[in-house]
């Protein structure tokens, strides 16, 4: 067995479609900001769209879709777990307000 760079290559047309799709997501993000949605809803929507863009970039631009699945399972779940663990400290962010000295 030899080591190869990638098994299959998408065509330029696929790349252009992906590029257009990502531009469309950016446009949706910009429109959402002026759609008068609540700040919580806006944050959630922007994060979902950003993760969607990132997933598309990883799969197509960074060719993760065309690599062996083991590469994905080795790299991505661990990274997501790290993000989930960082997510556990939000309660401390809320405590910042109560920990402040009063402004004279």
């Amino acid at each position: 067995m030899t080591t190869t760079e990638t098994a299959t290559e998408p065509t330029l047309r696929v790349y252009v479609y992906v590029w257009l799709g990502m531009l469309a997501i950016v446009a949706i993000e910009a429109v959402l900001v002026y759609a008068h949605v609540s700040s919580g809803m806006l944050l959630a929507s922007l994060l979902v769209l950003a993760f969607l863009e990132a997933a598309v970039a990883l799969r197509y631009f960074m060719h993760l879709r065309y690599e062996v699945p083991l590469l994905f399972w080795t790299l991505i779940p661990g990274l997501l777990l790290a993000f989930v663990m960082m997510n556990q400290f939000w309660a401390d962010a809320a405590r910042l307000n109560t920990l402040r000295f009063p402004i004279p």
Binding site: M22, V26, E29, V33, Y34, L43, L46, L49, A50, A54
Partner: peptide, 12 residues
């Protein structure tokens, strides 16, 4: 893709 929405769009 994360920096633009979080730093720009959330601070309009």
């Amino acid at each position: 893709m994360f920096v633009f929405p979080l730093l720009y769009l959330l601070n309009v």
